[in-house]
Design a protein around this nucleic acid. Structure first.
Lengths: 232, 232
DNA sequence: CGCATACTTGACGTCATTCAAACCGTGTGG
DNA sequence: CCACACGGTTTGAATGACGTCAAGTATGCG
């Protein structure tokens, strides 16, 4: 874990994160209140139940938001991508765990600092509202998926989503990406077991839609077929 | 469908809805821009795909937010209770259907009016942010439930939730309430079929936790047992 | 009264889970 | 360099929970 001063000028998400709506002087004030922090894969930002957990904007890497049920099973509720905002603003304590899926860099703020900023900078409140609504849509999309769809459909939809978000800049013929999740994490996210994930992944590969390279690598050979499998 | 002028003075949710944070003059301006509307059970407020769908605060009754998948199956994503806010602020078109579960009254605003108010009244933006975060937590709670739990657990959790929200004021020994949802709607919400809902409801009744009276009536005979079945 | 809608109940089939064992890549120590 | 252990993964066979199909039963409404 490392802490350093903020350097917004060369922040890769300065155009897309919530703080993009701030004026230069407002942003400077925020920068003075925040700190960058790095998390190694598996490291936790905060745990369910933590009081006044910090808030953060993700700069690079990926995080998961997860809950642990009474049997000790993890359920992944959301993934956080760069420029995403993490933190429960009005709750006195965190409802969920937030853990790094890959080595990550983020820009953290004390709860008080964020709350003051939301009061003082209306544009920030609006930006966070927008982001919160987007999170809500993403969570509902996941709910829709896990509600009725078959194991194969769920998995295909997740792969489809990953391939889109991975290849947003470059549009190769065969987009290649690495799964940021283990089989177990995929299962926890989609409501399936490790074994089912492994099996269905094999079946999707056999269908010709993808090819697996190594443990985490995925080549999308037939995007249209993958979309069809995902029910769209 | 009926439209009338707003009368905030005797609005039952004036203390709890988002507009409670407005100053009297701000509220008056909002009241001038809004209209009350009644929806009969089954009537739709707006449909997925509608452009610039109106926003609204629910005054009384109950709504469902639902999506229809490519096979025509409905999936209920959220319930809206009085004082709840409905509307997707930043999306150009609605992502989901919103339908009245019971006869309902609400207070509607054109998209432009809400967007202007969010710009002009920072307190409103913060109030909606808070509400959006609450919606997010509720949706994640449902996701958690449908992810791993058995049919019986899901159903017990839903009944438990209904019994809590129904008896918040009066604390009877045997709280009685009416299900606002049909069997099919319960199934669509929990990712189960009508038949499974019916069967498991019978089993929960046989366990002694509840008694069914008529089609929709529920008596909670043993709240502790019901909580235990719901996994908490 | 007759029809429609919602609910219940039973028999059967299917898909995902469970349990179990083998497999693979990687790092560690002899 | 090899042996070995370990975490993540794959594969197989058996079980079981929920879905599907099909009848049959209330309840309400014109």
């Amino acid at each position: 874990m490392a802490h350093t001063q903020l350097a917004c000028e060369d922040c890769p998400v300065r155009e897309t994160a919530a703080c993009a709506v701030l004026t230069p002087q407002e942003r400077q004030a925020m920068a003075a209140a925040g700190r960058t922090r790095t998390l190694a894969r598996g490291e936790m930002l905060f745990a369910a139940g933590d009081k006044d957990a910090a808030c953060a904007t993700l700069i690079s890497g990926a995080l998961k938001v997860s809950a642990i049920d009474q049997n000790g099973n993890e359920q992944i509720l959301a993934l956080v991508h760069p420029a995403g905002f993490i933190g429960e603003l009005f709750a006195p304590f965190a409802h969920h765990d937030v853990v790094a899926l890959t080595d990550s860099r983020l820009c953290t703020f004390a709860r008080g600092a964020i709350e003051a900023a939301v009061e003082n900078y209306p544009a920030l409140a609006r930006a966070l509202l927008r982001r919160s609504q987007d999170d809500l849509l993403a969570t509902r999309a996941l709910l829709e998926l896990t509600g009725h769809a078959s194991a194969e459909t769920r998995l295909a939809a997740l792969l489809d989503e990953f391939s889109r978000s991975a290849s947003q800049s470059s549009c190769h013929a065969t987009p290649h990406f690495d799964l940021p999740l283990t089989r177990g994490e995929i299962g926890n996210m989609l409501g399936l077991t490790i074994e089912t994930v492994s099996r269905k992944l094999g079946e999707i590969e056999a269908s010709g839609a993808i090819r697996r390279t190594g443990k985490r690598g995925i080549d999308v050979l037939d995007p249209a077929l993958l979309s069809a499998l995902s029910g769209r």
